[in-house]
Amino acid sequence: MQAKEIVRVEGLTRTYGSGETAFTALNQVSLSVSQGEMVAVMGPSGSGKSTLLHLIGGLDRPTAGSVQIDGALLNDLNDKALSALRRRRIGFIFQTYNLLPALTARENVAMPLILDGIRRSTALDRAGEVLAAVGLQDRADYRPTALSGGQQQRVGIARALVIQPALILADEPTGALDSETGQDIIRLIRQLATRQRQTIMLVTHDARVAAHAARIINLKDGSIVDDNRLKSRQEAYDAVPVG
């Protein structure tokens, strides 16, 4: 049986500015990602990695082309529907964690559920369970400022997973962490997502991080230069462009 298609991108283009100062960050990109796949998006700075991720996540609107997530065409959605899609189907993990400093770890994790109208106590209970899954049960009532970088990113992961999304988008999730913690984090993401057959797309510069993925897409100047499905870790290392 063929795996369900979670992400479908066709002719995706994003241009910033206009006239002489116009800059095309992404140019006619098309790709498809199936359920349970883990895809690493790589490329040099300014190659359009983050732009691609933001467009897939509905954080930005394309200049041309289309994005479908789990069958829903993002181009057709208004702000309300797009917001609902983000809080129900997509889990974001950011490089700088992007936690709300006013809230505790547990409340941060519960936020997408609360925004979705789930009762606060239920949301906090579920958040506690997910925090336990990322190993932070004893830090649940700490504010982000009282947590280390690695711990903050675990909270970020828990927040992304609490909604049991179809798609997890991670933008340089280990970029602000030391390499050992980074490895722990990426293993955690993969381990938790695999249980639920969740799809992961992550942007990274780090070959060791990309090596966890089964597919590596390389971008350059806004276009896909190669898209490799890999069978082994060694193949993954080999697929990482040098320089």
């Binding site: 917001s83 609902a84 899609l85 809080r87 974001f92 709300l100 400093p101 997408p112 979705d116």
Partner: peptide, 16 residues
């Protein structure tokens, strides 16, 4: 501004 951006990113609607 940043917090609001985060809230919007994780699914908060304008109305919320």
């Amino acid at each position: 501004r940043r917090d609001l951006g985060i809230l919007r990113a994780i699914g908060a609607e304008q109305g919320q």
